[in-house]
Each structure stands twice: as structure tokens, then as C-alpha cells.
Amino acid sequence: MKRREMTAIDLFCGAGGLSEGLRQAGFDVRAGSDFNEAAGATFERTHRDAKFLGGPIQDLAVDDFLRAARLRVGELDVLTGGPPCQAYSVYNHKRGMGDARSTLFREYLRIVEGLMPRWVVMENVTGITSAGSGEALRAIVEGFTNLGYRIEWRVLRAEEYGVPQERRRFVFMGNRTGEPIVWPEPTHGPGLKPLITVYDAISDLPILHNGEASVGHDYTSEPRTEYQTELREGSTGVFNHAAPRLANINMQRMKHIPQGGSWRDVPVDLLPRGMQAARRCDHTKRYGRLQWDRQSSTILTKCDIHWGAYIHPEQNRSLTVREAARFQSFPDWFVFEGSQTDQFVQVGNAVPPILGRQLGLALQSGSERVRKAA
């Protein structure tokens, strides 16, 4: 007997990285919601079988989601979501429960209570464990428990699942049905498949100069790795591949930085004034150049070379949106809408689709065990 597709709704979906991963795992993604208009345009373009609900989640009723997903209360298999993480991020020096975004998880719980899905999956940055002295973590667990869900949580390392990037995500997973909670087993690392590298991810993309955009969207070489072959499948070309234009002073700085190097390799007189007296142990990845044989550093909502390792391994320029998307494991046909700034935000906020796929397969595994035992 053919297995029924599990249904999913994605709250705070952004461009839809987690949704795309679930779809790759065989899920029927029925709807997504987000406040960001550019992300919504991307979601609608790339998830044509799903209904997008825009605007503040506070303005959306449970019935809006039920109508969009064509389901009744209790029928949804999985409700996923990642409430905005900036309030918990270690990169936000004012992080904590005082940030208005930090309580948006209560909106997630409101929708859970109304929909009563079988499964819930919530992801966030690892800083959620310490923000507000752990208040957010305790409130989330208590909220799920009060609704009848058994919850587990783990920190997942994206690179251990085939994502070419050092990225940590805090994931809650649970259900109200008593099904076993199965976590995805790592596929890459010591004793497993080799970690996917920067070379594996972007070495086939067209060469660009500072401020230059790829013309015609044509691939200029054949795929050089299995990873590139997978991400190019179904795409008609290279999109969102344009190098942000950097000032001349940054071009001078980059000439001194080798692969794996950083601001420490830049002559002091070329450094920003505020960094000229910095201790050598400070600003570890500022003006960092990526290495072909390593993983990318964490992709943030802007790949600004002043704040991290976002210089191309060989070309004297910063990363493009497409390169950031490759490091996040988005397929090449996945085109991002909005301004270049909007696009970087969408990519940086996303759950890597490959990680989402592994989570989806784990969810199916837990349900499959119950069906076989019945």
C-alpha cells in the first residue's frame, strides 16, 4: 500500500528552506506564513502548490491556516517554524527576552493549540538556551507540555548532514501521539562521508569581478562534484549571482589576504581606524577569506567582509547570493526575489534544505515504526 504523504505548514517560513527540505523528503507542504514581503514572493515562486499567508502572524487566525491547507483541526501532520532568531543570536549584543521578537514563539504555540498537529518542529539559534537566563527555553517546553506534546531538543550541526557550512541550529521536535521521536543520524564526518567543502559547493560558478553580475545566467563549466550536480538539477542556469560592489579600500585590503587569512594579514595602515589598535585575538573572522578545502563560515543575513569570512577563495570580491545559497544547500532553480539586501536576508535566515530534508526523513521514520507495529 502506498504511504500517505505527510502534510505540513511552515510558520515564519521566510523563503522556505525548511519547507523545501520537507518537500524533498516527500511531504505535502500546504501553506507557509511570514511577515517579510520579499521572502513571501520567493516562497510563492518556489512553492507553487502551497498557499502563502503574509503579514504579521498576530493578525492570522487558526481558520486562515485551516482554509489554506484544506484541513480540519487535528488533521495536520507537522507544524514547523522558526520564530525570528535575532533576539537570541549571540551576534545580537542586546539579545534577551526584552526584545519584542523573543516572544513570537507564543504565536507559534497559539497556532499549535488551534491546529493540534500530530507533530511539531521548531528551530532556532543555539543562543535560545541562554537568552533571558534560559527563560525562553523553559517557556517553550512548558507551553508544548501544557498542550499535550512530548518534546525533545538537540543542537544539530548542519555540516554533519552534507551542508558545506559550519552552522548550528537548536531544534525542538515532539508529538502528541506517543510516537517515537527519531533524530536524524549524521551522514558526514569522521568515519562517514567526507564533509562537503567550499570547493565542492561553488567551484563551478562563473568567475566574477568586484561589482560584476553574471550575464545570461549560463553555466560556464560542467559540474565538478556530486554536490554541484545535485544542486544544479532542474535549473536552467545561474541566478542571483552578482558580486556586491566594494569600495576601493576594501579591494586594497583583500590583495593581502590569503586563503584562510583574515584582517591580521592586512597592513595596519590599511585597516579601519577602529581595528588598528585591536588585539590579535579579537575579531577572529573579520576580512576572512574562505578556503577551498574547508567549510564556509556561518552564512548570516548579510555577507559583509567587515564582519566575517565572506571573501571568495580566489577572486577578490565578496560572496554572491547564489554562493551563499549554495553554502545553505538551496538548489539552483530556487530564485530569490527582492533587492540584493532582501535576498541575503532570506538566505541567511533559512534552514538549509538538506538539513530540513534529514529532519523530514526522521519524522517519517518515527511514524513508520508505529505503522509497522500496529
Rank of each mutant, 00 (worst) to 15 (best):
residue 335 V to L: 08
residue 297 S to C: 11
residue 279 R to T: 13
residue 338 G to S: 15
residue 328 Q to A: 13
residue 293 D to P: 01
residue 309 A to P: 00
residue 314 E to C: 01
residue 319 L to Q: 01
residue 315 Q to I: 00
residue 310 Y to R: 06
residue 303 C to S: 15
residue 291 Q to E: 08
residue 285 K to M: 05
residue 323 E to W: 06
residue 301 T to H: 06
residue 287 Y to H: 10
residue 308 G to W: 00
residue 277 A to Q: 12
residue 301 T to R: 14
residue 294 R to A: 04
residue 291 Q to C: 12
residue 333 W to P: 09
residue 316 N to G: 10
residue 334 F to G: 05
residue 285 K to L: 12
residue 277 A to R: 11
residue 330 F to V: 03
residue 313 P to E: 11
residue 278 A to Y: 15
residue 337 E to T: 01
residue 315 Q to F: 01
residue 331 P to K: 08
residue 292 W to Q: 01
residue 296 S to E: 06
residue 317 R to M: 11
residue 287 Y to S: 03
residue 292 W to S: 01
residue 306 H to D: 08
residue 276 Q to E: 07
residue 319 L to G: 06
residue 278 A to N: 15
residue 279 R to P: 10
residue 307 W to C: 10
residue 328 Q to M: 15
residue 296 S to C: 04
residue 297 S to T: 11
residue 285 K to F: 08
residue 279 R to V: 14
residue 291 Q to G: 04
residue 318 S to C: 10
residue 289 R to T: 06
residue 287 Y to G: 06
residue 290 L to M: 13
residue 335 V to I: 15
residue 335 V to G: 10
residue 332 D to S: 05
residue 337 E to M: 13
residue 331 P to S: 02
residue 307 W to K: 15
residue 319 L to K: 01
residue 290 L to K: 00
residue 283 H to L: 13
residue 293 D to W: 01
residue 279 R to I: 11
residue 280 R to Q: 12
residue 304 D to I: 09
residue 304 D to A: 12
residue 326 R to F: 04
residue 309 A to C: 10
residue 329 S to Y: 03
residue 332 D to A: 09
residue 306 H to P: 01
residue 312 H to G: 01
residue 282 D to K: 15
residue 305 I to M: 07
residue 296 S to R: 05
residue 281 C to K: 07
residue 309 A to W: 03
residue 333 W to I: 00
residue 324 A to P: 06
residue 318 S to R: 15
residue 334 F to R: 11
residue 338 G to F: 10
residue 298 T to D: 03
residue 324 A to V: 11
residue 329 S to Q: 04
residue 299 I to R: 05
residue 290 L to F: 05
residue 310 Y to V: 02
residue 338 G to D: 10
residue 325 A to R: 10
residue 310 Y to M: 04
residue 300 L to K: 14
residue 321 V to F: 06
residue 316 N to I: 14
residue 311 I to M: 10
residue 315 Q to Y: 02
residue 331 P to F: 02
residue 324 A to I: 13
residue 289 R to Y: 06
residue 338 G to N: 12
residue 318 S to G: 14
residue 323 E to P: 07
residue 283 H to M: 11
residue 295 Q to R: 14
residue 278 A to F: 14
residue 310 Y to P: 03
residue 337 E to H: 11
residue 312 H to Y: 08
residue 318 S to A: 11
residue 325 A to Y: 11
residue 323 E to M: 09
